[in-house]
Amino acid sequence: MTAALTKSWRGWLLPFSVVIGAEAWFLFNPILSDTLAAPSKIIRGAVETMMDGTLLRTTYQTLFGAAAGLFIGMAAGTACGIVIGLFWTADRLSSWSVEMLRPIPSVALIPLSLLTFGYGYRMEYAVVAWATFWPFLILTQHALKQIDVRLLEVSRLMGFGIFSRIFKIMLPAAAPRLFTALRLAVGLSLVVAVTVEIAANPQGLGYGLMVAQESLRPDRMFALLIWVGLLGWALNYILVRLEGRLFAHRAPGLAADA
């Protein structure tokens, strides 16, 4: 997908004509709008948010909230996924509970998180952690199931203990799939963090967007919106490239379907 964007001029035509069309429209209809802004105004708005520190501060808050929540979700999800993936009984015992809990939409926990932690980073961590916990749990479990049985037999023959079996055989063998889980969860964590900020938490890019809208500054609003889009796109792009680099030699099809 990114290759299409960088290799062909044709992909650029549509966005460019939208920008030029919008600019021309505002040039011939010079109205002061509360909802839309000319691209040139948006660029000026972007520069403004950069100069007054809004962009840096809100980006830091969102990324920090997303990253810390992601870390908690990853640690808990991978740990539970390993237990479920290793032990048949744990798998069966948890199956119903997982099926019941997983469909709870992360945003439904925003009010609960607000009640428990109040405004601030902690409520954001909690919701992001809940959302990212599930992909790690599921994908870790699947990754462990797909490990070559012979590898496990070898480790048993060599008399490995449970911990060296996990850390020396299983996790390295499952690494490509775990990385895919990470890539998906990174995107998810950003989406959820921004959503929490828009819905409740007065900090970060989501709140910045709401403030720009409420103070009738569409130029700043669209500047932040485009920035959020770029951020999500760039994170995904970096992780896809990294995935290709790290695991190309092991699973040739893996990076291609990204």
Binding site: T35, T195, I198, L205, F222, L225, V228, G229, W233, N236
Partner: peptide
Amino acid sequence: RPLPASAIIPV
């Protein structure tokens, strides 16, 4: 596509 759909809410 990767743009958080909720970010469109202010708009």
